[in-house]
Design a binder for these strands. Structure first.
Lengths: 144, 144
DNA sequence: GTGCTTGCAAACAGTTTGCAGATAG
DNA sequence: CTATCTGCAAACTGTTTGCAAGCAC
C-alpha cells in the first residue's frame, strides 16, 4: 500500500518493463488508477480521461484495464448486474463493503480472512488460487 | 438443509401461499431446484425442463428463478463473465468454491464466516444485509 | 519505419421485456 | 371467466472485437 505518486511510478515501470507503449491515454489512466480510492467503474474512468483527451474511446479504457489486470496490477470486481469496478491501489484479493443503495464501495478491515483460504484448501483438496469476499449493506449516509 | 422431496413441498407451499399459479413448467423447475446440488445455470435448468416440456422457453425459466429469488427461496450467484448459477437447496449466503477450469461449484465448510459480518458492521457503521464469499481454484480432478 | 495502439462501429452474450394467445384456479 | 403465465422475438447493457488510420519508440 503506497501513496498514489509512487504507485503511479510503479505502474509506469511495469508497463515499460513489458515493452508496452506509454501513450498519453494510458498514462492518464495509470494516474487515475494509482489513486483510485473509490473503486471506479470503466465508464467513470473514461469520463475523467475524456476531460483531458476528448477523443478517447471506452474501448481504449477497457483494453488498458484488461492489460493491467493481466499484469496483476489492477483488481477487477465484476458484477452481473452492474458495471465492473476497479481497484488499482490494492490489486490483491481483499474484502469489500458495498452500499446497495448508493453503490459506494469501501475496504473494511476484516481479521483472519487469509486463514480461510488455507482452511478451504486443506478441507477440500482444491488448489485455491484466489478469493472474493463482499459484504452488502447500507452505508451510514443511506440508512436515512 | 432438508431432503429434496420435502424441499420441493416447501417450495410448492410457498408459491401457493403467495397465490402464484402452479403451472407444469413451474412445478418441473421447482423439482429441479429443490435437488440442485450442482449449482446449475438457467440454461442447464432450461435444458432439463425441455426434456419433459419441449415448448418451454428460457424466458419462463428466468422469470420463475427471479420469482423464487424475490421470495428468498433461491440463492443467485451472479458472475460478470459467465452465466448466473442457482442454489435452491441452501438459499442463504454461504461460501462457494469454484473450479476455474471446469466451473464446478461446491459448498466448502468454513468456520466463523458469519462472525465476520458482525465484525464489519461494528467496525464501519454499515447495516450489513448480506455477503458473498467465493474461493477460486482448481478442483482435484483439474489439477491433472 | 515498424508494428503496437487508438477510436469507431459492429458484434457479443446473458438476461429482461412486451405482447398476444393459452391456461390455472 | 379472468387475471396470470407462457413462449416468442426484440430489446437491453456492459464489454469485446475487427479494422483502418495514427503515433510511440
Amino acid at each position: 500500500m503506497s501513496d498514489p505518486e509512487s504507485r503511479f511510478q510503479q505502474l509506469i515501470t511495469k508497463l515499460k518493463a513489458h515493452d508496452y507503449r506509454l501513450t498519453p491515454q494510458r498514462v492518464a489512466l495509470l494516474r487515475l488508477i494509482a489513486s483510485s480510492e473509490g473503486h471506479p467503474s470503466a465508464t467513470h474512468l473514461y469520463e475523467q480521461i475524456k476531460v483531458q483527451f476528448p477523443t478517447t474511446s471506452p474501448a481504449t479504457v477497457y483494453k488498458t484495464l484488461n492489460l493491467l489486470k493481466d499484469l496483476g496490477e489492477v483488481l477487477e470486481l465484476g458484477f452481473s448486474n452492474d458495471d465492473n469496478r476497479y481497484d488499482g491501489s490494492r490489486p490483491y484479493p481483499h474484502p469489500h463493503l458495498i452500499c446497495v443503495r448508493c453503490r459506494k464501495i469501501m475496504d473494511p478491515q476484516v481479521s483472519h480472512v487469509d486463514d480461510l483460504t488455507q482452511e478451504v484448501a486443506e478441507l477440500t483438496g482444491y488448489q485455491v488460487i484466489s478469493h472474493r469476499l463482499d459484504f452488502y449493506g447500507l452505508c451510514p449516509d443511506c440508512q436515512q
